[in-house]
Computed example of a mutant assay.
Amino acid sequence: MTLANYRFRPAAMSDLPLLVTWQGFSHVRAWWGNDEPFDEEQLRDTRVSRWIVELDGNPFAYMQDYSVHGWPGHHFGHLPPRSRGIDQYIGDPAMIGLGHGTGFIGQRMDYLFAAGVPIIAVDPHPLNTRAIAVYQKLGFQIVGAEQQTPWGLVLPMEARPPRRGR
């Protein structure tokens, strides 16, 4: 795993050209799609925190964390209050396969758990084996069968804070 200090800055409307470029790459489009990343109204939606991930001042990834209780009937709506879902991708192709996914996702998980989030959920496409392997490396466990949701076919996974003082 890459030991680095990633910076998470709030995504802004000025980031749209970069995000559209990243979503045009096949490695992102295969799992994320290439729709507009967000508009001004979505950017103001307090249910979702949207981040540009940087390393040494260079943006290379997008990440969002969201309230799993923000939408009626959400497939993670059964989780305890304050639980968060996450979604992300590495946009810069040169940063893939170097441990940065594990690194920045793990750093954000540490932050969320330290802030009192009891469970972090993620829902990759069942065929996205690379993402599933990264999530499992970070402590996520598969918690159910694949299922169809309004956001597509997903494999539900959850992580809990690491135990202290074992």
Rank of each mutant, 00 (worst) to 15 (best):
T2D: 13
L3I: 15
Y6T: 00
R7I: 14
P10W: 12
A12S: 14
D15R: 03
L16W: 06
L16H: 03
P17D: 06
L19M: 06
V20K: 14
Q23F: 01
F25E: 09
F25V: 03
H27K: 01
R29A: 03
W32C: 03
W32H: 03
W32K: 02
E36L: 15
D39I: 14
Q42E: 15
D45L: 07
T46K: 15
V48E: 00
L55M: 07
L55R: 08
D56S: 11
F60L: 04
A61N: 01
A61G: 04
Y62D: 07
Y62F: 11
D65V: 04
Y66D: 05
H69K: 00
H69A: 04
P72W: 10
H78F: 12
S83A: 12
Q88E: 08
M95I: 03
G97W: 06
H100E: 02
H100W: 05
G101P: 02
F104S: 03
G106N: 13
F113V: 00
A114D: 14
A115E: 13
I120L: 13
A121R: 07
D123R: 05
D123G: 03
P126K: 01
L127Q: 15
N128E: 03
T129A: 14
I132V: 10
A133R: 12
A133V: 06
V134Y: 04
Y135E: 09
L138D: 08
G139C: 08
V143D: 11
T149C: 02
L155C: 09
E158V: 15
A159V: 12
P162D: 00
G165V: 11
